[in-house]
Design a protein around this nucleic acid. Structure first.
Lengths: 129, 129
DNA sequence: CAGATAGGTGATAACGATTATCGTTATGTC
DNA sequence: GACATAACGATAATCGTTATCACCTATCTG
């Protein structure tokens, strides 16, 4: 039902063109910078459509949702609490253990999100006393 | 620095008296029901204080933060997207693999949160067509 | 082509959880 | 008791996100 309009294609292109994790505001600004201004509501609607079509992925952080390209295998995230840097990692065994744990509790799993918090290499170095 | 005032003690007691995962609003209402009305700002401040003192734990869900007792070993959560039921589970191996993965990426881990989404046993049964 | 239908768009209001502000109040210390 | 420090409560403010509503656009059907 949802259409891949010109604007949604542009959002998708921006997201696919980098490995960043974008929030709605950043995407609106990026569109603006590229000469195609876009309403913020349209950004949210477009992102929701793209995500439900599986064309992009997202992670829900404490304050906001961030979107990323979906053309990679499932992975989880490590967020630096100092600089906001996001590192990705995937671990097959963890995924399998999660499935087993869910099954054990009688849950039918539809998704999951693992976010690890800490200091990235850079920030850990910087904060040595 | 933070004081364990009468109100904060009462919040702590409510949380410790059950295995529920409370949000700020529910706690304010519970206090009210118990005859000690409390300002919502005070609830938030109290919860932040209790959490930073390690007296309670919290999980950040997509929409809001929920608080739970801290007297158990670390665990993660499974949330039923239908009824909101939260099931807890802990998995030693997953924890260890997370630590290893973080180390590999040069991250100094300070915390993590794993939330799994799906249908609980009850809701899975109910939605069979 | 005309009209119908289904979505999409954008400005903006509304929402909901959380935090900030600020005057007041309780607690602890000399 | 007087002063300092933190907590409290009402309420305004913040901020990400969603709803509303009045257009607009594309596609289909005859």
């Amino acid at each position: 039902m949802a259409k891949l309009t010109t604007q949604r294609q542009a959002l998708l292109d921006i997201i696919n063109a980098s490995h960043r994790h974008w929030d709605a505001d950043e995407l609106a600004r990026a569109m603006s910078d590229a000469g195609q201004s876009i309403g913020i509501a349209t950004v949210y609607r477009g992102l929701a459509a793209l995500e439900s079509q599986g064309l992009i992925d997202s992670i829900q952080l404490a304050d906001k949702k961030r979107y990323e390209r979906a053309d990679k295998a499932h992975h989880d995230h490590m967020v630096c609490t100092e600089c906001g840097h996001i590192e990705e990692f995937s671990h097959q065994t963890i995924e399998q253990l999660q499935l087993a744990a869910a099954h054990e509790k009688g849950f039918t799993l539809t998704g999951h999100q693992l976010v690890m918090f800490g200091l990235c290499h850079q920030c850990a170095k910087g904060s040595e006393s």
